[in-house]
Nucleic acid binder design. Structure first.
Lengths: 348, 348
DNA sequence: CAGCCGTACTAAAGCGCTTTAGGCTGCTTC
DNA sequence: GAAGCAGCCTAAAGCGCTTTAGTACGGCTG
């Protein structure tokens, strides 16, 4: 029962060749579906390989120009910020699903900031480690697309804006603008006129898109008590900002939070301050998760299929690796799930 | 501004050799700190390499027997279970910190179950992809240690019990038993006699350890209204079990939840049923996170430094890769942070 | 001054795979 | 009946690195 210490050598193509009585090249042809071997030989080689439990060495493959069979994903977030965030694991989970199918590995790294992230790309590229990368949290004035383009590393930007300037980059994006517009429309219909958007990290492309759209929608309707305030996504800042805006002379009647964590913290804070949700103030969370059904009132939230988002991104990347053209694909607009935290504005 | 399509060839040792006017082997010696070159040559080679931006190709390195400079981590959880869980990203974050220092990559994969996980290990091993792995969520009767031992793949088990049977495996573990004992002791001191433990996944080593300890502590004190109920860690099951136990004739006065998500769901459920926390029922969460301070009452929780846990594990693995002996190291016992959700038992 | 040794370096093989350039059959074609 | 041509297969080079074996040279010894 205690396992024996067997050195357990991995079989190589040479072993297969010997056992099958053919040359190594024949084995290579056979196993890769290339012409140059008869069907019966091919089958025999396949059987031997199978029986020996052979798997190609990625190192050797990579070295002979086939690529590393690996894609990279780096997360640039200060370590403590990535605590309670369902988004990433879900996304990764979706990504994996399609990568696993193709036997592609996922090299994962978390770093502090974007410059570090760029350094990682350079290193991965120089070390031949990855065939392509998935870029998350695109920013306004992002240096990463230029870098990846320069390195010739295929990439798909997740959540970016459509980008025609970079030939090797695909983009998978959600229509934040449309979602924001529909949320504002809904709140407006409920009588809300003073709306505060507790946004995420300033500089993130989607944050800025949401802010711009909110502003535009407000202007279009002649609303003046509308603003966006950026945060670091943490519950602490979410609570602090909530406290601040509710403490003002003319507090907002609706709050839009850029993630579920802040929304939760916001509701708790509002309640503490004596505001009743949704009677005094409506709350909507941008990002749905179990959290939203874990407090009363249940949070109305913008929901989207994050795993599917990941799957789509991974598909685009594999397409790129197969030599396909860069594309821009839009995933469905997040839908607003109305639960208990939104209601008519007081006095409307 | 639109990036130019430069093929951007990676420099190789041959390039360095040419520029420095020495042989490739000299370059190798110089760059790897091996004897056989003079100091001045070594320095010259280093400068040329630097200036060319050279980085060793991991593929080539791996092929010539140096290992893949990569460690693996696979997460065996049904995709939807890993939603709201701060634990993993934190752990990974800590792991990365020490891996990055040594320029080791982290190959990451999420799969459905343990058999799939084993298949991944076999594949990684056969494909020469990783030099070692980190194993999480050890189980009772776990097939993984035997497998890894057989493959000769260095590994550290995170959260396992000490294990002397496997020579290549290190273990990093937290003293769940001690923590459980202290929690029970605290609750007992507050007058609690009927305690229910809403546990995590049955079959996980630490789940079983906690359950065993709880039972032992109860017996020692002659308590009869004490039990553990296993769940899938989800808020849904947490809520369901809470509802069930509180609905009984003699409901418990204290609840111990194996994660923060279930604890939160539990508090919400209890409140809904008309139980006041902590007046009617005390709640403690096993695993502290921002969540615990996001609802009122704030949750008392067992807190530990998860990033540090990850760091420790990664250190052990690098030690193993350096040829060190397998070890068993214990991380600090989780500390109970008393917040608002625990109090004296009613009538005590 | 032959013989020896240590230092600084080079040549070449090998890791496991892909791929190009042949080689050898046996068949058609004029 | 010789040239041409498939079809099937092998030999060998090459990917970028490490490592072993070997060479050249200067200085030491006896």
């Amino acid at each position: 029962m205690p396992a024996k210490r067997s050195p357990a050598r991995r079989p190589t193509m040479k072993d297969i060749a010997r056992r099958a009585g053919v040359s190594e090249s024949a084995v290579s042809f056979a196993l890769n579906g290339r012409p140059g071997v008869s069907e019966v030989t091919r089958e025999r080689v396949r059987r031997v390989a199978e029986q020996l439990g052979w798997r190609p060495s990625t190192a050797a493959r990579a070295l002979s120009g086939e690529g590393a069979a690996t894609v990279g994903l780096v997360l640039a977030r200060p370590a403590d910020t990535l605590g309670v965030d369902s988004f990433f694991l879900q996304l990764v989970s979706g990504i994996q699903e399609v990568l696993a199918e193709r036997h592609l590995g996922l090299l994962f790294q978390v770093v502090e900031d974007v410059p570090d992230e760029c350094a990682v790309y350079r290193r991965w590229w120089a070390e031949h480690r990855v065939d392509g990368v998935l870029v998350v949290d695109p920013r306004t004035d992002d240096p990463r697309p230029d870098l990846l383009d320069e390195l010739g590393l295929p990439a798909v930007v997740i959540g970016g804006a459509p980008d025609e300037r970079h030939s090797g980059l695909s983009t998978v994006w959600a229509d934040d603008a449309g979602a924001m517009a529909s949320v504002v429309e809904g709140l407006y219909a409920l009588g809300h006129r003073r709306i505060v958007h507790i946004a995420g990290l300033s500089g993130l492309a989607h944050t800025e898109r949401r802010i711009r759209t909110l502003r535009a929608e407000a202007r279009r309707r002649g609303l003046t008590g509308v603003e966006s305030i950026t945060t670091d996504y943490s519950d602490a800042e979410g609570a602090a900002v909530t406290r601040r805006v509710l403490d003002s002379a003319a507090p907002p009647t609706a709050l839009i939070y850029d993630n579920d964590v802040m929304a939760l913290a916001g509701v708790a804070t509002a309640t503490e301050l004596g505001f009743s949700v949704p009677a005094d103030v409506s709350v909507v969370a941008w990002e749905d998760s179990a959290l939203c059904r874990m407090v009363r009132p249940w949070l109305s939230a913008l929901s989207r299929d994050t795993m599917e988002f990941g799957r789509t991104a991974a598909c685009e990347l594999t397409a790129l690796l197969d030599g396909g053209p860069a594309r821009t694909v839009r995933v469905p607009v997040p839908r607003l799930i109305e639960r208990e935290s939104t209601g008519a504005a007081r006095g409307a």
